[in-house]
């Protein structure tokens, strides 16, 4: 049966729609690999290096305070032994970082992704966290042999939803931990940390990843609180967080080759 000439294009469009819905990941790694072979559109730059000392100083100071608190509250007996066992497991799964260069910031009004020049040949697989200095930049979502697609932390996808801890910016606070919540991207360069108490965050506080994520280690910087509100007036506050890194100008990153620590912990 011959298809009428006037119906050819509508049928073709219908076939494209069907293909999109049925095979959303078709040829994804091939397409990523071909795209990565094109000349890079993100110029290599060392501009971000000048920001390192300030950020690193703030993060290290907070970590030191946190470790001192943990040292003081260290448990004893069997609990301490179990804790050491877990730490030993984690130490054996120490992350190995793979340096990568950003090739393209991908084109989409709904997604915030970029392509890096490291892939499965370098051990980069979906789910791995991508960092720059101490800041979490995103997670790998697709990987071909020599390239990978990274979903930025400000994307709205569930893959960029992390447990978050708010560290106080006040030097004389009794505890460095002010609150805990869940962070997700807003799609416009910011993050929102939800499920906070009324005093769960203040403007200027530092937000870091918390324990509980399968692949993303705790303690990576997500950003700085710039606003705190309870828009829905349900008692659950939200903090608007701005990443310390300028996500638009990222030119090079590190991919952490971590193993999912959550599955390695034994309990007796």
């Amino acid at each position: 049966m011959a298809i009428s000439r006037t119906h050819r294009v509508p049928i073709l469009l219908l076939a494209l729609l069907t293909g999109t819905l049925l095979f959303p990941r078709a040829c994804d790694s091939v397409r990523l690999g071909v795209g990565a072979r094109l000349p890079a559109t993100v110029p290599p730059t060392d501009a971000t290096v000048t920001e390192l000392p300030r950020e690193r100083e703030a993060v290290l100071a907070k970590r030191l305070t946190l470790l001192e608190q943990q040292q003081a509250a260290r448990p004893s007996g069997d609990a301490a032994l179990a804790g050491l066992r877990v730490q030993s497991r984690r130490a054996s799964a120490a992350p190995v970082a793979v340096a990568a260069r950003v090739l393209h910031v991908e084109v989409s009004s709904a997604r915030r992704t970029f392509v890096i020049d490291a892939g499965q040949d370098d051990g980069v697989v979906p789910g791995l966290p991508v960092i720059q200095s101490d800041s979490l930049i995103g997670v790998v979502v697709t990987a071909s042999a020599r390239a990978a697609r990274v979903l930025r932390i400000d994307d709205r996808a569930a893959a960029t939803t992390f447990p978050a801890a708010v560290l106080t910016s006040e030097a004389d606070a009794a505890s460095p931990l002010r609150g805990q919540g869940v962070s997700r991207g807003t799609g416009d360069g910011l993050l929102r940390v939800s499920f906070l108490g009324a005093d769960g965050a203040r403007v200027g506080d530092l937000v870091v990843t918390n324990a509980g994520s399968r692949m993303v280690p705790e303690g990576l910087v997500l950003g700085e609180v710039i606003e705190m509100s309870d828009e829905e007036r349900d008692g659950s506050f939200e903090a608007v967080v701005r990443p310390l890194r300028d996500l638009e100008t990222i030119a090079s990153v590190l991919v952490l080759r971590v193993e999912p620590t959550g599955l390695r912990v034994e309990s007796k």
């Binding site: 494209l16 999109t20 095979f23 078709a26 397409r31 989409s108 997604r111 979903l151």
Partner: peptide, 8 residues
């Protein structure tokens, strides 16, 4: 080739 959406 440089969009994150499905191929088609």
């Amino acid at each position: 080739l440089w969009t994150p959406e499905p191929l088609l």
